[in-house]
């Protein structure tokens, strides 16, 4: 039984050819999924490894369209998710992690303060990006940083809820749009509130 089941993944290569270029883009995704399987599944016998390989191949092929093609959020530049400037995230992530630390300490301070110094505001921030993925990243980064949560994005306008007045000001004068700009290599136009 195990001898046979480990051949099932190789029989998967027949539909692979008919999928053509698209399945090539799915290949690294399939390896990633199989790596995840190896971490999550403690059993190392042929049956379970074969099952993992089969599942990884199937998911990679079925969702290959999503990974390999340019998703609608990457327009108008039309870059696919695989060709995003991932290497720039290496510089962005530590900064973001540090901001998350500051954010948590600040919220903890406000919450534990005896007089509860909150002064919540709704702010509208305008940042114009030609790139939808950059807008998404900015909105998510605002949510993670001190005292602000993005509630809605409508075109170039971000509706942000800030916990204190200071955190709202920090966002308006902050460097976050610039950092997202360098991350994606695009230019933000008309920053203001």
């Amino acid at each position: 039984m195990p001898e046979r089941s480990d051949r099932t993944p190789s029989s998967q290569s027949t539909p692979t050819r008919s999928f053509g270029l698209r399945s090539l883009a799915a290949l690294p995704f399939g390896f990633l999924l199989f790596g995840l399987w190896l971490v999550l599944s403690p059993k190392r016998d042929l049956f379970h490894l074969g099952l993992g390989a089969l599942t990884a191949c199937a998911i990679a092929l079925l969702s290959g369209r999503l990974v390999g093609q340019s998703p609608p959020i990457a327009e108008p530049n039309g870059r696919s998710l695989l060709r995003m400037p991932w290497h720039r995230f290496v510089g962005y992530l530590p900064w973001l992690a540090w901001q998350v630390m500051i954010a948590s300490v600040q919220v903890a301070y406000v919450v534990l303060h005896p007089r509860l110094p909150v002064d919540p505001r709704l702010l509208r921030v305008r940042v114009r990006y030609p790139h939808t993925l950059a807008r998404l990243t900015l909105a998510n980064s605002i949510t993670l940083t001190p005292g602000t949560v993005t509630l809605d994005v409508d075109g170039d306008e971000y509706l942000v809820h800030s916990l204190t007045e200071a955190s709202g000001k920090a966002l308006e004068q902050g460097t976050m749009p610039d950092r997202v700009s360098t991350l994606f290599g695009v230019k933000a136009e008309g920053i203001g509130s």
Partner: peptide, 19 residues
């Protein structure tokens, strides 16, 4: 302790993520 739903989101989204 926080006064409304939106403020509570801050506590939930930030402290819990880091915690």
């Amino acid at each position: 302790r926080l006064p409304d739903f939106y403020c509570r989101l801050h506590a939930m989204g930030k402290c819990d993520t880091l915690g």
